[in-house]
Every structure is written in structure tokens, then in C-alpha cells.
Amino acid sequence: MEMIDIKNITFAYNGKPVLKDVSESIYPGEFIGIIGPNGSGKTTLMRCMNGILSPGQGKVELEGKDLARFSSNQLARKIAYVPQILTNVFPSTVFDTILMGRKPHLGWAPTKKDLEITAEIIEKLDLADIAIKDINKLSGGQRQRVFIGRALAQEPKVILLDEPTANLDLHHQHEVMRLLKDLSRKEISIVVSIHDLNLAMQYCSRFLLIHEGKLEARGGLEIFRPEILEKVYKVKVEIFENKDHKYIIPLKPLSYD
């Protein structure tokens, strides 16, 4: 059964259309990469999927029920969202930050179970040594793991991440993507928006290519064809393939012809 069902959604900011009639279904355990140029509507699509924005037309369903009919707490128990830039003005420790993921489940105070879940996630994500450290003093890779940890503490069915690998070095990019892939194996649907196509191709199970607010292509690795990428990204590309992997080599922007 579909986890998330996007049904013909349209969205406009101040009268300017950003999403035009987008439909898609996302299933449990999928690791979806949303790709597309800057301003194509990737982030807007994500915000519609987590209920922060409500679409002008159409609807998004979670397990067959319209998102608009969920209370904000109910929704937070099903969908976790990791936005791109997360800076705290005031310090907060790793443990406290992950514990906040229990917020939608909390009564007056965190129970023993909440603390256990938090400690378990900290151990799993290898954050034990820095559990009482201020998150503002962590490296980009560590911070990203902390916020993925917070998303996990929500015990969601779906985790949406807006460019989780931006600003990370090679090692941490792969570490984060690997972690997300492992999570998707546990029947959590993972949806990321991502610019690095080669990175996405290595880890994601399925791709949604957005161009000017429309789904230009969807599917597995087969959607990466030179003519599509040249149309969408306006870059001349070559594609290499061996038995395990497929790579895109960007050659030059088309406007330089």
C-alpha cells in the first residue's frame, strides 16, 4: 500500500505557479531522490508532503488519509522533516536535540522510554562520545547525523530531508547517504532532495526529476539519459556505465556553445 500519495497537486507563491499538477506515489522502504535545477520546485514539493504547505489544488494523502485531516501532532508521529539549514541561536546538547524528536509523543515530561529511545539512537548513530556536547560546536557531518537522529526519535514512517548532503565533504556525504539507505531497508520511506546526481544515483532506489514545477521523469537509473539532462539542466553531459554503476560526466553548460 502507498505510504504517501500525491494527487494532482498545484502550488503557487504569490500567484507564480511553482508546482503544476504533480502526482506520485511513494511506497514503504523506498529511498527517493528528488532532483532538478534550482527553483524547479523540489523544496516546495517536500513542504507539501510534510504538511507545512497545503497545495492550492489536489491533495496529499498519508496512508490513504488526507494530510489536512491530521492534527499537527499526529502528523509529526508519521512524518519527520530535516530542513536544510539548522542553526540554533542558543546552545543545545546532542541528547536534548534528539530528545526533542519525542515531542509529538510526550505528555508533561519525557518518560523512561523516551530517554531509552534517545540513548538507543545516540548509540546507533555513534554519537555517544558527544552526547552532552553543544550541537553548534559539531562538524557538519555530525550535525546532520544529530538531526537525522531527531527525525528517528519521532519514530516516523517517512523521513523527508532537504539537501542532506549539501556542505558536507566526500566522506560525510557518503556516510549520510549510506545511513539513509540502511534506514530505508527498515521500511521507513526516505525522501531526499539532492543536487549531486552521481551521489543520488549511487544510493537512491528511485528518482523524481522536477523541471519547472512538473515531473519531467520518474523511475530508476534509466531516466538518466543525455537528452533529458541536457533539456533540464542545460548542460552537455556524457554518461558512463559499468556493470555496477552509472556516472554522469558534465562537460559544459549549453549556453557556452
Binding site: 510534510n50 501532532n73 499526529q74 512524518i79 541561536v89 526533542m100 515531542k103 519521532q154
Partner: peptide
């Protein structure tokens, strides 16, 4: 107090954690 804790990490994360 929990709402303010979550709010400290930003509007969008707070919303996604169920805070109005």
C-alpha cells in the same frame, strides 16, 4: 517549555515536530 525548546531550532523544524 517543550514548544519553546523546539522553536529554538527554527520555525520549520518546530512545525514538523507538531508545534503551531
Amino acid at each position: 517549555r517543550w514548544n519553546y525548546n523546539v522553536l529554538d531550532t527554527g520555525d520549520e523544524p518546530a512545525q514538523s515536530l507538531g508545534v503551531n
